[in-house]
């Protein structure tokens, strides 16, 4: 984290290459999270770009005792929410959009599609906690930090989100195959 702080301080003074190092370090996480919220790859990069721009402009407001990634996630969440509301992005088919690291078999893609479609049906409050928990692997404490709420709230939202998913995914669960 010391390294982050140094880079942040240099970036505040206008050192763009220092900020570039921070972007390199966190772009995977941020584009990933933006992707979960916006639903497609093109929008995800637009959102992520906006996130880093906002971060740059507000670097001086970053409290150094906090985790930089938590702070970025928070900006990502707010930016993505606005973006989604503004553009009213509809669920797009991910097949043409996503870039795979490796080739995934059709079966796995189908599972992904099913879960993704179900996730899209959740209210944003419930969707966001699952995104941070399941895709970004944040702890409850970290999620509470990102969303600026209590751990109890995170706990209850995740539980409610899963309850809803359970209903939405019931047909698949009942078929006996583990999704």
């Amino acid at each position: 984290m010391d390294n982050d702080i140094t880079l942040i301080e240099r970036a505040i003074e206008g050192d763009k290459s220092a900020f570039g190092d921070l972007v390199d370090k966190y772009k995977g996480k941020i584009v990933g999270a933006a992707f979960r919220f916006s639903g497609n790859y093109k929008d995800a990069e637009d959102v992520a770009q906006e996130v880093f721009l906002k971060a740059y402009l507000n670097l001086a407001k970053f409290r150094k005792e906090a985790d930089f990634s938590t702070w970025l996630y928070r900006i990502t969440y707010n930016t993505a929410c606005n973006y989604v509301r503004k553009k009213k992005i509809k669920m797009t088919t991910l097949k043409d959009d996503i870039r795979y690291e490796d080739e995934f078999d059709i079966e796995r893609n189908e599972k992904r599609e099913i879960v993704r479609a179900a996730l899209e049906k959740l209210p944003l409050k419930l969707k966001s906690v699952l995104v941070f928990r399941e895709y970004e692997s944040l702890s409850y404490k970290e999620i509470a930090g990102v969303l600026d709420c209590s751990i109890g709230t995170v706990e209850s939202r995740i539980s409610r989100a899963r309850e809803k998913l359970k209903v939405l995914l019931r047909p698949y669960i009942l078929e006996g195959e583990k999704i």
């Binding site: 996503i98 870039r99 795979y100 490796d102 796995r108 992904r112 879960v115 399941e134 669960i173 583990k178």
Partner: peptide, 17 residues
């Protein structure tokens, strides 16, 4: 059931920025 739902998330592929 919940574990089954949870495991479905990890199927998401990584992608290159």
């Amino acid at each position: 059931v919940l574990k089954s739902i949870k495991s479905a998330f990890s199927c998401e592929p990584d992608y290159k920025v």
